[in-house]
Design a protein around this nucleic acid. Structure first.
Lengths: 241, 241
DNA sequence: TCAAAAGTGTTAGACGTACACCCATGG
DNA sequence: CCATGGGTGTACGTCTAACACTTTTGA
């Protein structure tokens, strides 16, 4: 609560940080199917020196939480997310050795094209979300929870387009759902459920050059809002006009 | 993120607090139907001196977030919640005049009996959740969001029992759903959906003394876990054995 | 015996799933 | 003309909502 002035003495001992779990889709080399991947950053100091961790950093004094998430993930990975949402605040006393840190964690989706442009090197690397090494701090738990949220939300919300470009075929959209939910979906039924939900609008463009009937391109329907965060959308709208 | 040591200089200017939105059911005087109410605390200093606000306080240095929520709501209202879950972290720069405060907000459910025992006085008072005065800070938005979460969660999760005592009739359980969701439910269909879900187990006790057929008493089925927070349940289980 | 709520049965429609089938294109 | 994925039709099982009906108590 914001009850009067919080005692500075106590608070000074608790640091506040913002981290982000970033998801993108990548083709699996072996199977050719798309799967969920995420970029991690190598720690270059104790604790957990040398281990992989989520990108993030301290909260700036004049910076909203989501802004800090966007900034820190941009600084470390060079990415710009198409979707960003708060995940959870992790604040257990023993979650970090040394001085106490409360982390407010966000999760983000980036387009596959954008993901390839991302800086990769000695200290930034992509990993398959379902097969991670042991991460620093409680970051394995955090990624597990973010993945759970992503998979849940994919079923009832319209966020899949954040993995794709401006226009896309229904097959591409279906492949996003299949990658995240981890199983094949019936193309016919998928088509009907999407078209019936007003989630997308048809363009008059088609994809030519394929060895089969050309597919129609669709666009995300921005005139219908997500309404999947309830009253909070009021808060976020103000910031992103 | 917990990336190295957060810059203390910046962080010192951001205070961290924990607040809680507490829900209980009360009979509406006029209609006799149960509705959702919550206790608020009157502020006794600037900013927003005299206005109503959510109970809460600063985070103790050696205290988990949920523990802080439990403690502060107990200190201000005397209540002990049957259900407690993190809601959201509010941290906009301009959400509070004066020094910046980031609030990690929880929401809680308490039994109706327990709610009556709660301290009420000059500085603590119950309000109907759907008809609140103008609250301090962004607390109106916070309550709206908590209500939205409560109503959503009531539809797919098994939290209704947290409003009731150890044993209850299916009619009492249905009235909880009706109060939160704001509409009447078919008793026959409600019975079947609950009994088919394994959410409750029948006792061999019945409620006598009524002017009609005695109703069977049920108990909440603790052997099935909620599984509505995904991997996070791991985290919470450790704390509440 | 009557009112009132407990509890059971039945049905019509909505919806999800499976799968057969036709269409349009490049090779 | 054939292989390939785009796109349509349809039928069946499950779930949901509505409501008629029987049961058991106290007054």
């Amino acid at each position: 609560m914001v009850s009067g002035e919080a005692r500075k003495v106590d608070d000074a001992s608790v640091a506040l940080a913002v981290s982000t779990v970033i998801f993108a889709l990548r083709q699996d080399e072996a199977s050719g199917l798309a799967t969920v991947w995420l970029p991690l950053v190598r720690r270059i100091r104790e604790p957990f020196d040398g281990q992989w961790a989520l990108p993030g950093g301290p909260l700036g004094a004049a910076e909203d939480l989501a802004t800090a998430a966007r900034r820190t993930l941009g600084e470390t990975t060079g990415l710009t997310p198409g979707y960003l949402e708060q995940l959870y605040a992790f604040g257990d006393v023993d979650r970090s050795p040394g001085p106490r840190v409360v982390s407010i964690v966000y999760w983000a989706l980036v387009q596959s094209e954008e993901a390839q442009r991302a800086s990769v090197g000695e200290n930034v690397q992509w990993f398959p979300a379902d097969d991670l090494p042991a991460l620093a701090f409680d970051h394995n738990l955090i990624v597990d929870y973010a993945l759970w949220r992503l998979r849940n939300k994919m079923e009832y919300s319209r966020i899949a387009h954040a993995f794709l470009g401006e226009t896309f075929t229904l097959t591409q959209l279906r492949e996003v759902h299949e990658a995240v939910r981890g199983r094949a979906l019936d193309p016919a039924n998928f088509r009907r459920s999407i078209e019936g939900s007003d989630a997308v609008v048809a363009t008059d463009q088609r994809v030519t050059g394929t060895r089969h009937r050309p597919a129609r391109l669709f666009r995300y329907n921005t005139s219908i809002d997500l309404a999947d965060q309830g009253p909070l959308s009021r808060l976020n709208e103000r910031k992103e006009p």
